[in-house]
């Protein structure tokens, strides 16, 4: 069974929600993340690593691999972040920032599209044979020296595997960020900001032996929580949590919280 968690790994945006920034042309970024998801009965732990490379200032390639420490025996299906698969998948993704309007000092609007392919590191997930999947998302946002906001939505589709098929996963995220005046010190002083992140997930039904799975593990959820991001030179650290404010889980585990911490280094 899979554990699942999430975080983003770009390093200077939100922790859970979709975001827009891409690396500089020729830029390389490494992220290491520790993540946990707690249900009523169990708690998962996972480490995840992401390498990112900026082909151009608007086009970025990423590859991410997991180290599963503890998998949930009955894991909710989730994704909800821009750069990492929710489960123990290996994923390659391309980000394309198709719109950018820098209109002032520290201010810009931009929109980014994400396309990724994942391959699982396990054979079954929740009793369903798990296959490769594709994921697409789009997000748009505003950044300034004081305020940030991103809104986005995505969709993950799992291919059929031996008469089984995991249900698809539409999701959406909304993030508001703020940097207080006390953290307005100029570069190279440390730079801190706080986010309020929200995430809504609407997983579809899985197919088991060609039929809709009798065990309905769909669980519509809305989760909200804070995250914090600190940046200093080439380093970034972010940490945060999400808590469910709405759960419509027919069967399967009720979530209690998700924790995540991410360390970034820009090479």
């Amino acid at each position: 069974m899979m554990a699942l968690l999430k975080t983003y790994a770009q390093g200077h945006g939100p922790l859970y929600g979709l975001q827009t920034p891409t690396l500089a042309k020729g830029g390389v970024d490494f992220n290491a993340a520790a993540m946990s998801l707690a249900t009523k009965d169990d708690q998962s732990f996972m480490l995840r690593y992401i390498w990112s490379y900026g082909v151009t200032e608007d086009l970025q390639l990423n590859i991410t691999t997991p180290t599963m420490i503890n998998r949930l025996s009955d894991s909710p299906r989730t994704r909800g972040n821009s750069n990492m698969p929710a489960n123990g998948d290996i994923e390659a993704s391309v980000w394309y920032r198709f719109f950018s309007n820098a209109f002032g000092v520290g201010k810009r609007f931009e929109s980014t599209a994400i396309l990724s392919v994942s391959t699982p590191t396990e054979d079954t997930r929740g009793g369903i044979n798990v296959s490769n999947s594709i994921h697409g998302a789009i997000s748009t946002g505003y950044a300034s020296r004081t305020w940030y906001a991103w809104v986005g939505g995505g969709y993950q589709y799992y291919f059929e595997e031996a008469d089984d098929q995991l249900g698809d996963l539409p999701y959406a995220s909304l993030v508001i960020g703020y940097r207080p005046n006390i953290f307005m010190g100029d570069y190279p002083k440390p730079d801190w900001r706080v986010f309020v992140e929200s995430l809504a997930e609407f997983p579809g039904a899985s197919m088991n032996e060609g039929q809709i799975s009798p065990i309905d593990q769909r669980g519509k959820k809305v989760m909200i929580g804070p995250s914090f991001l600190g940046l200093y030179g080439a380093w970034g650290i972010s940490f945060g949590a999400l808590f469910p404010v709405y759960q419509d889980v027919v069967q399967g585990p009720q979530e209690r919280y998700r924790l995540s911490m991410n360390i970034s280094y820009w090479l």
Binding site: H12, V105, Y148, A234, W266
Partner: peptide
């Protein structure tokens, strides 16, 4: 003058 630069890693890069 540089527009759109909002974060320390941006300046670092």
């Amino acid at each position: 003058e540089v527009f759109g630069m909002d974060c320390a890693p941006c300046a670092y890069g």
